[in-house]
Design a protein around this nucleic acid. Structure first.
Lengths: 156, 156
DNA sequence: TTTTCTGCAAACGATTTGCATACAC
DNA sequence: GTGTATGCAAATCGTTTGCAGAAAA
């Protein structure tokens, strides 16, 4: 992520916090920074964020991390995802709201999670909105199967 | 569900169990029966299955229910879904594997979950398989937004 | 200075596990 | 008979909460 984008993310956090009478704290700043610094295809659990903070010598309480990833999710800065491993994970949400999210490919063999950077659900969403009257704001799409590496190893 | 289909489901369970050296037990039979008897748009948690069994005077252990819904999921008879309410839920998987699953529309206001009975992801899946080499077996799609009832109640 | 935030430890709730007994094959 | 399944209770693990002190605004 470019330095400009990073600065934007942080300014965005400040804005959204003050809008709702929340306060900017070092904890919130550094938690967001963890996501900015992490690879784009990382999906971090609260505990993982907590550990990464420790590695940077920030000794925040685990409960604070839990509270704040959830807050950042409510502010629209993080996106919540569950991959069925029993822990809630978060990732930076797309800056461009038009883009919605990418999709996740989950390998049933090696458990690897691959990002697929295309949306292509516009049509489906239109169809659903017309047929059901449901107003769609976002979506979460997971594909289960075998990744290129495992495809041939698995008997089927 | 037609009586023929129900019988088929139960025979299917028997077959898949013996294939893998598992045994058919009253517990497994009645747990599957709960899903057969429940509305198609119900997504039952282990505890809910346990309660429904109790209502039918089957006093099985809760741990047994947990073990067996997970087993049925591994056998491909049930599908696991998580809606973010902290409990894992299950539903009968589609008998026709071509159909994959329907999609779920989740209302952010009233938390209602609506099924949408169309797939329309064939194209997207082909595209993903070609571009990534990933072999797709199934998918799970959730749309978040406001249902027809809540759409107008919500400010924004 | 007022309100929100944090850290700690305790509480919670869903799920899992160990083990002795019961049961399907 | 043999190996798997069950039931129970205890253990586990991610997450939440209450509360007193700390720190933003």
């Amino acid at each position: 992520m470019s330095e400009t984008q990073q600065l934007f993310k942080m300014a965005d956090l400040r804005g959204r916090l003050s809008e709702r009478k929340y306060k900017m704290t070092p904890q919130r700043k550094e938690i967001l920074q963890i996501f900015i610094d992490s690879d784009e295809d990382k999906h971090l659990s609260a505990e993982e964020v907590y550990d990464l903070l420790k590695q940077k010598d920030f000794d925040f309480g685990l409960a604070t991390v839990y509270r704040n990833v959830e807050l950042l999710n409510n502010l629209g800065i993080l996106n919540k995802i569950e991959f069925g491993d029993g822990r809630t994970r978060y990732e930076l949400s797309a800056s461009d709201p038009q883009l919605h999210q990418h999709h996740h490919l989950i390998c049933l063999n090696c458990k690897k999670i691959i990002e697929f950077e295309e949306d292509l659900l516009e049509n489906l969403e239109c169809k659903i909105e017309k047929k059901s009257g449901f107003k769609i704001l976002n979506h979460e799409v997971k594909f289960f199967g075998y990744c290129a590496d495992c495809k041939n190893k698995v008997k089927k």
